[in-house]
Nucleic acid binder design. Structure first.
Lengths: 258, 258
DNA sequence: CGTAAGTTTGACTTACATCAAGTTTTGTGG
DNA sequence: CCACAAAACTTGATGTAAGTCAAACTTACG
């Protein structure tokens, strides 16, 4: 059943259409300005359309469940999500797997491969999606000539590293309810940054995937959603989440001394 | 009591003595060759003495418990440990703190600041130690001119990111005994890589610090050390650890299906 | 529209935390 | 260098948050 979908999306890789990026031909975009080439707000994504063009970015469509890259595959590109979302999954020594990240439109995927020859995790589309493919060698070359691109690149790495660090902190110190609160607030912030509602969004991950990301079992995730719903913190209707009391959610995270 | 020790170590920052690095003046070190400038094996540390010299590295001594950098401090340098060891600590929203890393001789500290203007954690010496201070702006400049230094830098970032990712995986999927086994095997590997015994080493962290790093309480760490000691996996005598059966330790980590 | 995948909820179990008391180790000042 | 105090560690008894197992219910996709 997935095969058909994959076929339908196939052959959709195309070179960037230069005509589409005609509008902003200046070397700099103002903060908050929309980059038509990749649908990214420039204050969020440090790589402007001029860079994407010059770097020879291509596009790639992914059907839900399709894999963008796998562990062991040579690292040649990083990706920005034009539309849709994806998760990354790592495999532990034994067969188990853990969701290590969740990316939405405008975010960078595949950065974990930098500095090594190969990717370390699997990236899977959570819904039909489209990504920009940025050849890393070219990006690096440009960064060498233009220090501001270098800094932008570092910023992309730093964002990824900061995310991983905060997950580490969450897994090491928080209880289940706090983890879920932190997860929702993180999503809220990221949706907001990208111009979507910060209080109402659709989860693309299953309870099991959320649990895997948070170091919890799916039943625990479900129970805590129900419990938050009952206490009026959030409204949860299957995958649709409405944050009713973001302040109280934030309070949950901070109000545990010891 | 600590103040006196700090005073004793003060005023010990000095510019690199060029005379000390006289030996290898070639542009490349062979794998495994010792870098006299920083006591690092070149196959372990990607930055050779020539680079350290050129980058204007200085040295700094730290007394046990002394802080190398604090959260919020401007990020200007990264550090390599010449001797001793240190931990990094992050503060959660509320007052609690978590140990986020543990570095030994030859490893890079402070990399988490890359891409941001400031450091995100506190680095504290676990024993009297000495570090190389590498001004990052200079390093970046050199990397721009020399692609191979760029790659080395990326490799340093990647090593740090990989470590964080594996901690994330550990915290998300492993039980207490497995975490401790993974911790010991990680230390074992790193000591081995740097030319020390892989089966016998002295822990510089307390049980509480180990617990903080592993997301466990100090009592749990203690109990599991005792239990591993009883079953003959390791010999634990206070801070001195001898790995008696590394294979069985590895087995602990992998032999949990589901 | 039917089926498979995903979700919720309950009953029970367990791994780790907490609390507490006693012991060992470490570091410091006499 | 020894003695003493503080810090670190060990071990036991008990509590609890989250996991496990199971069954019924809901959602969504082909």
């Amino acid at each position: 059943m997935e095969a058909a979908a994959v076929r339908a999306w196939q052959g959709s890789r195309e070179r960037f259409d230069a005509g589409r990026t005609a509008a902003p031909r200046r070397s700099e975009l103002g903060a908050g300005e929309v980059c038509t080439a990749c649908n990214l707000r420039h204050d969020v994504s440090p790589l402007c359309p001029r860079v994407l063009e010059e770097v020879g970015a291509t596009r790639r469509r992914l059907a839900r469940g399709e894999t963008l890259f796998r562990p062991g595959e040579p690292f040649v590109s990083i990706y920005t999500i034009r539309s849709g979302s994806c998760k990354t999954v790592m495999l532990t020594g034994d067969g188990r797997e853990q969701v290590t990240a969740y990316y939405i439109r405008g975010e960078f995927v595949g950065v974990e491969g930098v500095g090594t020859a190969v990717h370390r995790c699997e990236a899977v589309a959570l819904e039909d999606s489209e990504v920009c493919v940025l050849p890393f060698a070219r990006l690096e070359e440009m960064a060498r000539a233009q220090p501001q691109i270098q800094r932008s690149l570092y910023r992309v790495f730093a964002t990824e590293a900061a995310r991983e660090r905060s997950v580490m902190l969450m897994l090491g110190t928080m209880r289940a309810e706090q983890r879920l609160a932190a997860f929702l607030l993180d999503l809220s912030r990221r949706y907001h940054e990208r111009g979507y509602s910060s209080t109402e969004f659709v989860l693309r991950m299953t309870r099991e995937e959320i649990g895997s990301y948070l170091g919890l079992k799916l039943e625990t995730v479900s129970r805590i959603f129900s419990q938050m719903h009952r206490s009026g913190l959030v409204h949860v209707q299957s995958r649709l989440v409405k944050l009713r009391d973001p302040l109280a959610l934030r309070g949950l995270i901070q109000a545990t001394f010891q």
